[in-house]
Design a protein around this nucleic acid. Structure first.
Lengths: 210, 210
DNA sequence: TTTTAGTTTAACCAGATGATTAAATGAATT
DNA sequence: AATTCATTTAATCATCTGGTTAAACTAAAA
């Protein structure tokens, strides 16, 4: 059965609308009325389903930040060589943000809200220490082995991790500026992001391989 | 003469306060009262100096986005070899954001507000076509020459540009998450950003040199 | 048909927030 | 000392916004 607007429960419609608007406009830039309108209902029903704006926001943020880290872990936990794993990390993340943009970037949303509200950052990361530690452990271990084998130059795993994230995410975070700078329409942007998958992977591998 | 709080004009104090808060909390997250309080004055005086929140915000944004692109152009227009230029671009940008953070990141501020308000993005970029075109022209020309000389692998200049920006800016944009993930205090973060200057430069050069 | 329980809405409230105004203050000038 | 003009403030306004409430509607159960 196809999922149309009608088949969604009101709760799902609200969550979908909230997600879209929070990612696009942020917590403080989004009105409860806007979410209601986007979901095709009114404000009171919003509070019937979700007690408060903060509660609704926290749900959306929790989901997105977990998803963000989850995607990374998926790629890193796979049983592959380092180079294949990097290719997969680039592929999975790019693909995810290419088809999940809401007209704005999820990583931007996550980082921005964390910067705006350190309490939120601390609270949310507290429940993700398992995820993050696992990411760094698995990745760090594999890097260490490759360095010892002499297949790649010595590099701090967290540095390499930041580098990969930077290369993958930058086009999505800087999208509005890049689009205007280079006069890219949506389709052109998509093509460039698509093409970057291969190019970034090679860029990274060239950068680290001996 | 040292610049203390007393030597600043009221206008400067307001702009300083507005800058700090807008960068930290964004347009929609910042209250006019907060700016007044931060500047040590009251709300009415704010409107006496700057007609409206939007006007004040636009001034701050204009300044920061111009500065952001200006720093890049400074490095790119210098009379140096490509590799030296990349080193300088990394150095200048990192140094700038290391000493200009407001507890939050300027590039994040610029990108975020552009994503939140496409009108603002279009309006602001319209006056910066000279800057951006100059950046891409000068950079593109030099890349082309190096590729023809065979010193670097073929790469689209805008791709390389995005890559450099991603590598330099990512730690600053993801700072809250990274700090919690790795348990870095401010000083540790500073040291890591400092150390990355050399490492990123080598990373990039290894990635592109034949 | 009546009852009942889950949905949905319009109207309203209290506090927040951007903006205005008229009066007060203070320092420089006459 | 009196005048003048730029600063500064407290009080106030109109609107926005998150949240509440009581009533209306709907469809299934009795």
């Amino acid at each position: 059965m196809q999922i149309t607007e009608e088949t969604l429960t009101t709760e799902q419609k609200i969550l979908q609308a909230a997600r879209k608007l929070f990612i696009q406009k942020g917590l403080t830039g989004t009105r409860m009325d806007d979410i209601a309108k986007e979901a095709g209902i009114n404000k009171a029903l919003l509070h019937y389903y979700f007690r408060s704006k903060e509660k609704l926001f926290e749900l959306v943020f929790e989901e997105e930040s977990k998803h963000f880290l989850g995607k990374i872990l998926d790629a890193i936990e796979s049983d592959k060589s380092l180079f294949e794993k990097i290719a997969q990390l680039v592929e999975i993340d790019t693909e995810h943000y290419l088809h999940n943009s809401c007209g704005a970037s999820v990583p931007m949303f996550v980082f921005y809200e964390m910067a705006r509200d350190p309490e939120l950052a601390a609270r949310q990361m507290r429940f993700k220490t398992g995820l993050t530690r696992r990411i760094m452990d698995v990745f760090g271990q594999q890097i260490k082995i490759e360095i010892e084998k002499g297949t790649i130059r010595p590099i701090d795993p967290s540095d390499l991790f930041i580098n990969i994230m930077g290369l993958v995410l930058m086009p999505f975070m800087a999208k509005p500026m890049l689009q205007i700078m280079h006069d890219w329409d949506e389709e052109t942007f998509r093509q460039i992001a698509e093409k970057r998958k291969k190019e970034i992977t090679e860029f990274i591998i060239n950068a680290i391989k001996v």
